[in-house]
Design a protein around this nucleic acid. Structure first.
Length: 829
RNA sequence: GCCCGGGUGGCGAAACUGGUAGACGCAAGGGACUUAAAAUCCCUCGACCCUAAAGGUCGUACCGGUUCGAUUCCGGUCCCGGGCACCA
């Protein structure tokens, strides 16, 4: 066994250092927290991991960022909650179960055990007493309970919806399991199939989800923009075309009613009732429609398809001109969006344009550019900007708004159309035909229909003693699970065998952490009211839309049930970038992974944490480099040597007595405290915080090389102050070493309880500043001036400068721009 | 295809509000120490031209614009990455 005693004269050995610190934190339950209304709380949460087996570098990065922020806030005196758990339901467990011939539950719990140990090795300041796993009935029972409340409120409903169907394996496939249109195991061409599924009415909250984005000023702008576009609110006109020889109406929605007179055809989805009707007497059309059944469900798949269509033979009657236009079916019209039909204006919509060109359909220009919009060339492409109406009869000369108003009036008067607000957002389908998920708490009764499981019968426990066959979920044929009595009529009934989308579990875990062990309900109000909202949420940018939108939605649902009191769950959001190696995302399939465990063994958790934080800012991608890790390790060794070799004292700095060299070190110390504090707090960039501490290290190194820092005088006091600052400032990132060095610096009490250092504004004043002297915007000289030099003084110094004079000699000075403290630019010519 | 990011030395990056481009680190080269190596310490390090010393020109993906001044703002182009509703 390794020698676990620490000798500060020896080289840095991470093992005893990290063991000593971790033992201290464990023995003192340093990170266990309770409600304390007398203290300001800070809830810092990192997105919990899927227990895939071992931590990967992406996890390490994510959780280190969260830990850095948590420890920083704790040092600032906040009552910091930082919990951890596992998002434990999901598809990979079923795949692993099939491969290893063991139940998903066993695999999952084994992985959790291992990953918990790995997280502990990294020294994260978690309150482990709150750990949860979403696959545990104590957790998902409340999700089932919550779903029943939504059922009562009419916020859930069942409807037929399409899935990817593997006709050979007789199973529903996830998008991920469809490769090039075929099932990943069977290789069979996938089919679309409609099955009844449960939906939650997220569209009922679309307006609020959109509006409240404005409240999220602690979120990255790009995430808010992505969510806004995803929700996709638009205002338009909904109206209907009559169809020749049919009672059916063709209802469409358009955001460009001003182009109505340019309609030259209509397009409907393959599954549109009109297309299906026409196909009955048209085998070629039937074949075309059938072919659309083999397209994977994913939107990207449909959007990149070659645009194809076929004339249905039906004609629509233009509501204004009475003109007849053909109705086509087209593969780019989605049955799931709007009414599954569109009016087509090829002159003013690029997609319609390309389709019209391909199939020889008419193109009629009805908008011409106004003085703001660009030129148009209808021979080459559609003109999609707004402009002035032409070729539009009574509407000629109107602009977009005028045309919208007048056409709306026309349709309203005829009661054939109205203004509509549409959302791109669709209701959330939560049914999965998979095993490893939370059972949907519904009982299907022939007499009573779908009946929620009564609260007293919750949870509906997922049987875990199962065998996975790679196709059907084992509970779908498990009579002991299925057979039950109807809670309403008592008759024979069947339990729902679908499980919830795993996004359900991850949509409220942040709230459960506030009272993770509470058995009296989903959330314990006093605790939740104290800890929520999450002050800082950290996770991958890949979750920018779905997870974060569903969580926001759940929060509002919980609010409306009186469970939480705020409108939004996450005050501040940090989306961290990916970890790359050789320019690509680390992944097993590419074989470019680096196992954190080996790195921790070799260099220690502190080095890995330091490297991850130093290499890039948190929101950018991080390129892995082995020698970069070496560099981080070397810095820690140098730091150990400098501080370990320093003899601590309790001398205090006597500001009035300092010489210039001492003043400069002190200035650097305090400037570093100020900069690093700002980097942690406002900017959340840790690479520059570390760089600043390294600069301070270099400065102290130079100072000690030139002066005796152990002299018992002001040199020693100045260095002691700098070293204390370095240890405190690095503590959130390198907590183990700093914990140990803190006591070596003669400090009483644990570092985690030491306050965050403050800076002395008086110490920040520099003895001189460098002013750039430019001529015509080009740097010609650098002026060393007193820090308080005003414009006139800077100008005098610049014109007195030899090099500057060289460049302004013989030419007229046209203008002089002075930015005090920064630069002077002399414009000549 | 649509939405959102990103592109700066050999490499990771910095420049925070339009104001000295390349802080900090890695790699490389040179030197010190050493019997030697490792470790450590010191020096050099964007490209090109030029010099005895100096100095100069260019340079932040590409093209154009605004400005005394643009990595930063605007318009366009290319490339790379994330998301697209059943991967999590």
């Amino acid at each position: 066994s390794p020698d676990m005693t620490i000798n500060f004269q020896d080289d840095y050995n991470h093992k005893p250092v990290e063991q000593q610190a971790q033992t201290f934190w464990q023995d003192n339950k340093s990170f266990k927290v309770e409600v304390d209304p007398t203290r300001q709380k800070f809830y810092c949460l990192s997105m919990f991991p899927y227990p895939s087996g071992r931590l990967h570098m992406g996890h390490v990065r994510n959780y280190t960022i969260g830990d850095v922020i948590s420890r920083f806030q704790r040092m600032r005196g906040k009552n910091v909650l930082q919990p951890m758990g596992f998002d434990a339901f999901g598809l990979p467990a079923e795949n692993a179960a099939l491969k290893h011939k063991l139940p998903p539950a066993n695999w999952t719990y084994d992985n959790i055990k291992y990953m918990r140990m790995q997280l502990q090795q990294l020294g994260y300041a978690y309150d482990w007493d709150r750990e949860l796993a979403t696959c545990h009935p104590d957790y998902y029972r409340w999700e089932q309970w919550f779903f029943c409340r939504l059922f009562e409120k009419g916020l859930v409903y069942k409807k037929e919806a399409e899935v990817n169907w593997d006709p050979v394996d007789q199973t529903v496939l996830a998008n991920e399991q469809v490769i090039d249109g075929r099932g990943w195991r069977s290789g069979a061409l996938v089919e679309r199939r409609k099955i009844p599924q449960w939906f939650i009415k997220i569209t009922a909250y679309a307006d609020e989800l959109l509006r409240d984005l404005d409240k999220l000023d602690g979120w990255p702008e790009r995430v808010r923009v992505m969510q806004q576009n995803w929700i996709g609110r638009s205002e338009g006109l909904e109206f209907s075309f009559k169809v020749v020889g049919s009672d059916e109406l063709l209802t469409v929605y358009t955001t460009r009613p001003d182009t109505l007179m340019g309609v030259t055809y209509c397009a409907v989805a393959a599954q549109h009732p009109l297309a299906l009707e026409a196909a009955k007497s048209n085998p070629a059309l039937a074949a075309f429609i059938k072919k659309q059944d083999n397209i994977k469900l994913a939107e990207a798949e449909m959007a990149t398809l070659e645009k194809e269509g076929m004339d249905t033979g039906l004609k629509a009657i233009h509501p204004i001109t009475g003109e007849q236009v053909p109705i086509w079916t087209a593969n780019f019209v989605l049955m799931s969006y709007g009414s599954g039909a569109v009016m087509s204006v090829p002159a003013h919509d690029q997609r319609d344009y390309e389709f019209a060109k391909k199939y020889g359909l008419a193109i009629k220009q009805v908008i011409s550019p106004d003085h703001i919009s660009k030129d148009c060339n209808i021979e080459k492409e559609a003109f999609t900007e707004r402009g002035i109406l032409i070729n539009s009869g009574d509407y000629n000369g109107l602009d977009f708004d005028g045309a919208f108003d007048q056409l709306l009036t026309f349709f309203e008067n005829n009661r054939t159309g109205s203004k509509q607000v549409n959302f791109r957002l669709r209701d959330w389908g939560v049914s999965r035909q998979r095993y490893w998920g939370a059972p949907i708490p519904i009982i299907n009764c022939a007499a009573c229909g779908a009946v929620p499981v009564p609260d007293k019968d919750l949870p509906v426990i997922l049987p875990t003693d199962v065998e996975i066959d790679g196709a059907t979920s084992p509970i779908k044929k498990m009579r002991s699970f299925i057979d039950c009595a109807c809670p309403q009529c008592g008759g024979k009934a069947e339990r729902e065998t679908d499980t919830f989308d795993t996004f359900m579990e991850s949509s409220w875990y942040y709230a459960r952490f506030a009272s993770a062990r509470y058995e009296g309900g989903m959330l314990n109000k006093p605790e939740v009211d104290y800890w929520l909202d999450v002050d800082q949420y950290i996770g991958g940018v890949e979750h920018a839309i779905l997870h974060l939108l569903y969580s926001r939605f759940f929060h509002k649902l919980m609010r409306d049930l009186g469970l939480v009191k705020s409108d939004e769950p996450f005050k501040r959001l940090l989306t961290q970038g990916m970890v790359l190696k050789d320019g690509a995302k680390m992944s097993k399939s590419l074989g470019n992974t680096v196992d954190p465990e080996g790195m921790i063994e070799q260099y220690g958790a502190d080095t890995v944490r330091l490297y991850m934080m130093f290499t890039s800012p948190p929101d950018q991608s991080l390129e892995w480099s082995d020698s970069g890790v070496e560099g981080a390790y070397r810095f820690l060794r140098r730091l150990w040597k400098l501080i370990g070799g320093f003899t601590a004292s309790n001398l205090t700095v006597d500001v009035a007595s300092l010489n210039d060299a001492q003043k400069e070190v002190r200035q650097k110390t305090h400037a570093t405290i100020k900069k690093v504090t700002d980097d942690y707090d406002r900017r959340q960039v840790f690479n520059t915080a570390i760089a600043a501490v390294m600069e301070l290290y270099n400065e102290v190194g130079k100072f000690t090389a030139a002066n005796n820092a152990q002299d018992g005088g002001q040199n020693q006091a100045i260095v002691q102050e700098a070293l204390e600052a370095m240890v405190l400032l690095l503590a959130p990132i390198v907590p183990h070493m700093c914990h140990v060095l803190w006591s070596h610096l003669g400090k009483q009490g644990a570092l985690i309880d030491a306050g965050w250092p403050s800076w002395d504004e008086g110490a920040l004043v520099a003895t001189k500043v460098s002013i750039a002297a430019q001529v015509n915007g080009k740097l010609r000289s650098v002026l060393e001036l007193p820090p308080d030099s005003d414009k006139a003084a800077i100008e005098r110094a610049a014109f007195a400068d030899e090099t500057v004079q060289k460049f302004i000699a013989g030419v007229a000075v046209k203008k002089v721009i002075v930015v005090p403290g920064r630069l002077i630019n002399i414009v000549v010519g």
